[in-house]
């Protein structure tokens, strides 16, 4: 069974963000990047499936640059088998989804059995890549998943909605995006960290002729609130 996990990294949530002089990006100087919290649930779920299905392999996919190395090493340390770094410079959901779709299809010579993503990046709060990937690969995609059970090739999923949840049953292959509550991610252990150092990261570039059409033109601080009344 082929399990793919798409991972991104985000500034540490406690980081003080400074807007760069171009006023379009944040100044990454002195900011530490961490694995996106929702992606940790995605990876953990993939590792749990691997643990219960003989011969399953977990392959991690990141669209990013060399700064993603520590994030990928962490995924290895948690138990990922392989990793592919897709070296395309892009900030846009569609481009990321498109790059992932192309490289994932090539990597598995078709579709993997399950693709796991986080429900959203806590940097952009877009929550778009998973559903887009579903359209691009023509795979059923279930977003904001809080419970996942596999019975043979039938997946039973629960996804969060306002005031409750929706239950779905879907035959593999499928895509899911992980919500908090899905599982408790493991901490990498010593052995995992040692193994992680030796693993190879495969590098790829994706054909990006179909470019997205969304541009981030400006970043600003939210307007300051007038000081409140203390009673």
């Amino acid at each position: 069974m082929n399990l793919a996990v798409c991972l991104t990294q985000v500034p540490d949530t406690a980081a003080r963000l400074k807007i760069s002089t171009d006023s379009q990006t944040i100044d990454s100087e002195g900011i530490s990047f961490v694995l996106n919290p929702y992606d940790e649930y995605a990876l953990e779920e993939a590792l749990q499936v691997k643990g219960s299905v003989l011969g399953a392999r977990v392959t991690v996919f990141c669209v990013g640059d060399d700064s993603f190395q520590p994030t990928i090493r962490k995924a290895f340390a948690m138990g990922a088998d392989d990793a592919v770094l897709i070296e395309n410079q892009t900030y846009e959901s569609f481009d990321v989804a498109n790059a992932l779709a192309n490289v994932i299809r090539a990597q598995f010579n078709g579709l993997p059995d399950i693709i796991f993503l986080g429900k959203e990046s806590i940097a952009t709060n877009d929550a778009q890549v998973g559903a887009m990937l579903g359209e691009l690969l023509q795979m059923p995609a279930v977003c904001v998943v809080t419970s996942f059970k596999l019975e043979g090739s039938l997946a039973k999923l629960e996804r969060e909605i306002e005031g409750g949840s929706e239950l779905l049953e879907i035959e593999l292959p499928l895509i899911l995006t992980a919500q908090k509550g899905l599982n408790l991610p493991r901490q990498p252990n010593m052995k995992g960290m040692m193994l992680a150092k030796k693993k190879q990261i495969l590098k790829q570039t994706a054909d990006m002729s179909a470019a997205g059409k969304t541009h981030n033109t400006k970043l600003e601080l939210p307007p300051k609130k007038a000081p409140g009344k203390i009673l």
Binding site: P11, L17, I26, I122, N125, K213, L219, E220, P222
Partner: peptide
């Protein structure tokens, strides 16, 4: 729209 969990506001342009 809010980005970075409410810490910043991003202006987005759609030209499609």
């Amino acid at each position: 729209r809010f980005v970075y969990s409410g810490k910043l506001i991003s202006t987005i342009e759609l030209t499609s």
